[in-house]
Simulated scan of single mutants.
Amino acid sequence: MNKKQILLINDMAGYGKVATAAMLPILSYFGHPTYNLPTALVSNTLDYGKFNLLDTTDYIKGVFPVWKELGFSFDAIATGFIASERQADIVSRYCLEQASTGTTIFVDPIMGDEGKLYNGVTPAAVKSMREMLSVAHLCYPNYTEACYLTGREYKAEGVTKDEAHNLLEHLRKIGSKSVLITSITVDGQPSVVGYNNIHNEYFKLCYDEIPVHFPGTGDIFSAILIGHLLDGESLKDSTRKAMDGVYKLIDLNKDNIDKNRGIPLEQYLNIL
């Protein structure tokens, strides 16, 4: 099978299996040559409440001309945490340029969960992420992020099927061709809803929730999803496999004492 080269544009945590540290081992295990460009260096996962963060925008600005001169290209680019509006502008322009030559752009607009923004994420991030969505072939915000991106009210009790459909449509209007919304309760069921631009298909996939929290599960979902998509599988099937993979990993690690460091992925790659 012809494996695809993918670039991860996401933050790198020194302590904890999140973002690039979570995605790189999974995509590499899938056999895809995986490269990375850190948007920020973070001392540890934000769940510890205290952290140090270095914005790498100036570094990124210097990287792209070098890569262009060396003729580097990628089959796909996956973006995650974006540190500033300036960084969003530089990264989105690079993604747009690469997309014009056939590169697929995946955007995970990492901003918040459970109705609020993550520790250290500012309201300006919402504008930055809208800019990233405008160049995406596929975006997959969680329900909280979808509400922030579209200016819709977050409902803790969840939404109806029609409201979920409406949210997908408003995300498409921002520019992403295909869309998923993760961690959304639809008619009382924890679900992932989606729209596949290629087949003009809407779908809803339900799951059972395990009541524990690990940082990085969205990144794990993203990596498994992308791994299957790059192998030529459909969006709906890839989404289901990503959901099942995350469920298995949470179930196997639900009794871990320090959940703030994320899931220790390397010992479980064979189950994916």
Rank of each mutant, 00 (worst) to 15 (best):
M1Y: 12
N2D: 13
Q5K: 15
I9N: 04
A13P: 12
K17I: 08
K17M: 15
K17C: 13
K17H: 14
T20F: 07
A22V: 09
M23P: 00
I26V: 09
I26K: 01
S28G: 12
Y29G: 00
H32I: 05
P33F: 05
P33H: 05
L37P: 06
L41R: 05
N44Q: 14
T45G: 03
G49V: 09
K50D: 14
F51N: 05
T56E: 05
T57E: 15
I60D: 04
F64Y: 15
W67T: 08
K68V: 12
L70W: 02
A76D: 09
T79A: 10
F81T: 03
I82H: 02
I82S: 03
I82R: 01
E85P: 09
R86L: 12
V91K: 10
V91W: 10
S92I: 13
L96T: 08
E97H: 04
A99H: 14
G102Y: 08
F106Q: 04
F106I: 04
D113N: 07
Y118L: 10
N119C: 11
G120C: 07
G120H: 10
A125I: 03
V126A: 01
S128L: 05
E131R: 15
S134G: 06
H137V: 13
H137F: 13
C139H: 13
Y140L: 09
E145M: 09
L149M: 06
E153M: 13
G158A: 07
V159R: 02
D162G: 07
E163G: 07
E163L: 11
E163T: 08
A164V: 02
N166M: 04
E169H: 03
K173H: 07
I174D: 04
I174F: 09
V179S: 03
L180W: 01
I181F: 00
I184E: 00
T185Y: 01
Q189K: 06
Q189A: 00
V193H: 00
N197V: 12
N197K: 10
H199V: 11
H199R: 13
L205W: 03
E209L: 06
H213V: 13
T217W: 02
G218N: 12
I224K: 08
I224L: 13
G232S: 10
S234A: 14
L235C: 05
K236Q: 15
D237G: 01
K241H: 03
V246W: 00
Y247A: 02
N253I: 04
N253G: 02
N253P: 06
N256C: 03
I257R: 10
R261D: 01
G262N: 03
E266T: 11
Q267N: 12
N270S: 15
N270G: 12
I271Q: 11
I271P: 04
I271E: 11
